[in-house]
Design a protein around this nucleic acid. Structure first.
Lengths: 210, 210, 210, 210
DNA sequence: AATGAATGAGCTTTCATTCAT
DNA sequence: TATGAATGAAAGCTCATTCAT
């Protein structure tokens, strides 16, 4: 297809496509340069679009970032939900699925991880980010909590307090991601998945025998 | 104290004092506004100094940030080392001490945590930050690893792989911090300390009975 | 013309027009204030444009200065070439033309002369300036050299060394410009043109009888 | 002499010595970096003195520059006067002496030339510079004029107009300096001296036979 | 006399946003 | 819808000058 055909084609694309195109470009640029060094010029150049287009499709740079985080959060949500639903319908398999989901090849990429941390680094100052993130993530915690409750009841782990257990499990998978960013050399996606699974087996040894 | 007294006092302060003053102001401003929204104007206004001082005492804004992270990392280092040395000289007590140190009142403040994450959010794009951070933090991991090895040998936890265990423990305490930032409402310093200690007891039940 | 008409007109001007506009404004400002006291604020105010345009159309202030010198050098080049080509096709007329060109009303203005010396005053420290200048000026020297050679052969001035003669002639016309700057009161464009022509007649008396 | 002796000694030096020290340092820095890139920090570092010292000995940076140009102009003046007085007391020898003086090893250095042009590049905008320069240089022109008058009368060069001739000779020696700056590669002090002397011989062939 | 920390006006440059086309 | 020239606020940084010591 000659260049001007492509041009024409792009002209007529519906707004939603253009928005997604910009979100992907933002993702790319933030992952490469970080948050504070990403400019709209970078984003539009990455997307091969003109400079003015961002403020046409988004109210502001902030709005684009909100949408980008929204995309990331939704993608994350859909991924673990898919793992969850595909797992055998036992609490142990489901909990394991939720954890393993976070280390899926499509989710646990360098690019995405660095953008996650870029956002988290700003979470405290941008209530929006926190809101968008929690909107999706609270459900994950609730699900983990519920599964822990089932396992504790089922396994008779009398000394385990449900909430603390759920918190610990969530902390471990977040911490694993942080390690993947901070020690990119030695860190490996699958290795850290196994670190998390090892932890599960320590909490629920009857359900996760080694 | 009248203004010109203050003026007098400020002049000819040794350079190190002024540097620390600026670092503290940077810490304050970053914790309030985040990384990309902090300007030198904010910093100098917080420190009640003139605009030009920063570039007099530091080569650049970047250099001030390096120094700020350095301060934070060193403070963190000295804190856990102090806990470590004050603990009873057994592996279990020492490991517990290193973990508890991270939740010390002086270290685990909202202000500091938010700055930590601000830095981590940039770690990938600023090799400097990573270097400064790792310079201090590698030793902590090594110590954790060593203590895990002792505990595993001592307790006969044959099914525990040392490195993975150490990684899990480190991940849990990092993840706890992340939770403290992301869910500031429900999250409590002491609660998350106990989450971490609970995890320890799951890994080494003989050494950390509940 | 009402202000918003002007506004309209200014928008979407082709880039080349805006660049030239900025170059002319730079020329103006440098001629008034000199090199080190010219700021982009002066330039944009002279051009009645907003502050940001310079860095939109030029990479930097330095790049604007390069373009300004380039403009000046090219204008100078085209001027003497025009004189040269319009002259009767004899060596004597042509040499005279090249010299007289430098004192043309459009070239030998106070404004331009002062900018030339502003640049020359920086030539040693900015290799760029020298390069741009020499790119055009070398050809002038080569032409002078060639014409001197013809005249010497033709007139049998056996005691004249070609290169030295050409150098002397070039030096005289440069020195005349310098005098026009240094003694602006007594100095007159036409007077110094005649000083140069007098010198020609001393070097080649047979060709330039008085 | 140990360092602190030197220190002591410097402390007690009279003001004039310190002023000269700063002027030499300014000369050095301007010749290396040019006018607009020279800062007082450079100057004081070159002079191995403390930052604040310039404003103690001079009213302002401008005042230091005035003094620097004054030094240069006076040195130039004394140099040609010395040549003049040392020459055989004939008009021809004296004129030749004034010209040759400008190419003396101590005067015609890269360093000094570049500073001269830096000043000339600013001459138009700083009446002070022009005043300081002319204060010394007018006398040189008057002397050249007088000598030309003698030579014209003596040699019976009836077609030579005195003022124009003097102007031409002055222009040639200034232009030679400009060439030495603009074409530093091929240009040689002695070569350009000879270019000037060649010109003299063209104006006054009876007095300067080749 | 000399020092060097401190000041602050003013510089160049960046960049989100606007808007005529 | 899309473009990209234009805007101008605000950033980091420089540096002549001041001044307590």
């Amino acid at each position: 297809m000659p260049a001007n055909e492509l041009q024409k084609k792009r002209r007529n694309e519906p707004s939603a496509v253009r928005r997604l195109q910009l979100i992907m470009a933002a993702l790319d640029s933030i992952s490469k340069r970080g948050f504070s060094d990403t400019t709209l010029k970078h984003v539009t150049e990455t997307a091969n679009l003109s400079h003015g287009v961002v403020n046409y499709h988004f109210d502001s740079k902030e709005a684009l970032y909100d949408a980008t985080l929204g995309f990331l959060a939704r993608e994350h949500y859909e991924n673990w939900l898919h793992y969850y639903e595909a797992a055998e319908p036992t609490a142990a398999h489901r909990l394991s699925a939720i954890i393993r989901a976070d280390f899926d090849k499509s989710i646990c990429t360098h690019k995405r991880l660095s953008v996650w941390f870029a956002f988290w680094g700003q979470a405290k100052y941008r209530p929006n980010y926190l809101k968008i993130h929690n909107k999706y993530d609270n459900e994950r915690y609730d699900r983990i909590l519920e599964l822990c409750r089932e396992l504790i009841t089922d396994g008779g782990y009398d000394d385990l307090e449900v909430e603390r257990t759920a918190r610990a499990i969530e902390a471990i998978s977040d911490g694993a991601w942080l390690s993947l960013i901070l020690y990119p050399k030695d860190a490996d996606r699958r290795e850290f998945r196994d670190v998390c699974l090892l932890s599960l087996s320590r909490f629920f040894p009857k359900h996760f025998p080694i």
